[in-house]
Design a protein around this nucleic acid. Structure first.
Lengths: 165, 165
DNA sequence: TGCGGATGATTGCGTCAACAACTATTGTTA
DNA sequence: TAACAATAGTTGTTGACGCAATCATCCGCA
């Protein structure tokens, strides 16, 4: 007579585990392309966010808010990227405490060279495995969740109605 | 005239980012309950997997295959858990190289005491935010992806057609 | 204008995990 | 049965990241 394990079979637990395992597994599948370029996932994420931002630049604190990193984490990622010539710091003219992380030409080129392989990976292991309907349903569910769970996910992104660019 | 950023707006990239941000955000929401008990997410994951396994035990290597950890990572997690009295090692009688990690009574009690709070968290930030249909659609899409992306996710779990337990 | 609190970023320190090298045991094959 | 390869797990080393403390600058208010 073993201890009862049924308590640990709650569907909520299963759902959470499913999400965690799927994400971890997917990440493992797309890693090789990234690491082949000498980047960590964090490096790649930061570079991509810079590339997508106006002026290829983002405040350190915005980067921290957008990524899952602490501000000290951002400091060190940008240190690394700067040492490899992929990003640079620029002091903010309007606030001398602040700094921008700016994508360099080399950083942009590296990212561009990675992109097609990365998109293939995503297609192979994620978007291409689902029917259009399934993918839509997945993405809209995820959008709902993200909206609740990540209030500050768009820090540093100029709002459409805002003082553009 | 700024550098073209449109290349970095591919829907596949957006989908990947959405999944990553949702998972990271969700994890951040459920963390406090875990850490309040003095556990890291990894600790919790390992304890939970032990609790769900027959005999509350799992081979070290199976634990490594099920989690996202390397074998050395598993060694040290179990070290920590053992030091806190939450798990123990037992040598495998049939293979003296091998070891089981076993959940202790104390570990089981800690886990049980955490569980209701944790389930509330999941409900509050995940399953409870979606309609039943949305949740079903999300989970079945995730199941498809996980099946492709995590071949060894069930290491150490006895197959339904297998030798009982 | 000058003081006090808030904010942006960096640094010191501890923890955690991966990689590679290693030990101990098991299986294989000659 | 002796040698060799494969397997299970642990240990040394290195790098990444969060937290707390710190420094510099900015803003509000008298």
């Amino acid at each position: 007579m073993t201890t009862d394990t049924a308590i640990f079979e709650d569907p909520r637990l299963t759902a959470m585990g499913l999400l965690a395992e799927t994400f971890a597994g997917l990440q493992a599948k797309v890693m090789p392309t990234i690491t082949a370029a000498g980047l960590s996932m964090t490096d790649f994420d930061v570079l991509l966010r810079l590339a997508r931002s106006g002026g290829q630049r983002l405040r350190m604190s915005d980067l921290a808010a957008q990524t899952a990193l602490s501000t000290s984490g951002v400091t060190r990622v940008v240190d690394r990227l700067e040492n490899h010539g992929l990003a640079a710091r620029e002091i903010c003219p309007s606030d001398r405490r602040g700094a921008y992380a700016v994508l360099t030409g080399e950083g942009g080129r590296l990212l561009a060279s990675l992109l097609s392989g990365h998109l293939n990976d995503i297609d192979r292991w994620f978007t291409g495995l689902l029917s259009p309907d399934q993918l839509d349903a997945l993405l809209s569910a995820l959008r709902i969740l993200r909206g609740e769970v990540r209030p500050g996910a768009t820090a540093g992104v100029y709002s459409p109605a805002g003082h553009g660019q």
